[in-house]
């Protein structure tokens, strides 16, 4: 069971503003999904290695060669608030 307080904590970590109704619904829905997910607990996973990727390769790297960067206009083309050749944001210090 995920309670309201946990929902708010997780929403804060994920930077999602939820209204009261969403918090209620999220609490119920996440709880029921997690109930199902917890059926995994039946399995004996002792000594089983985790799989975080299925590709069986290592050391795939690139040479340290310069590739073309985007022209600055293109880099800033999608910016919600471009200013002085940069991306402007509300100050984190405010």
């Amino acid at each position: 069971m995920i309670d309201r307080k946990q929902v708010l904590h997780v929403a804060r970590l994920a930077r999602l503003r939820l209204d009261d109704e969403e918090v209620e619904r999220m609490s119920a829905e996440l709880s029921s999904i997690l109930d199902h997910v917890e059926t995994m607990a039946e399995l004996d996973i002792e000594g089983v290695e985790p799989t975080s990727r299925v590709v069986d390769a290592e050391n795939v790297m690139r040479a340290d060669d310069v590739a073309a960067s985007l022209p600055r206009d293109a880099a800033l083309a999608n910016a919600p608030d471009p200013a002085s050749g940069s991306f402007r944001v509300p100050s984190p210090q405010a």
């Binding site: 995920i2 969403e22 999220m26 996440l30 997690l34 997910v37 995994m40 985790p50 799989t51 975080s52």
Partner: peptide
Amino acid sequence: KRRIMLGTYALSSGYYDAYYGRAQRVRT
């Protein structure tokens, strides 16, 4: 939003092993 919440919760401190860690082993 639901999946971001679910995933954030599964990775958050104290829950990683029970959810993400276990799921990766089930995947194996």
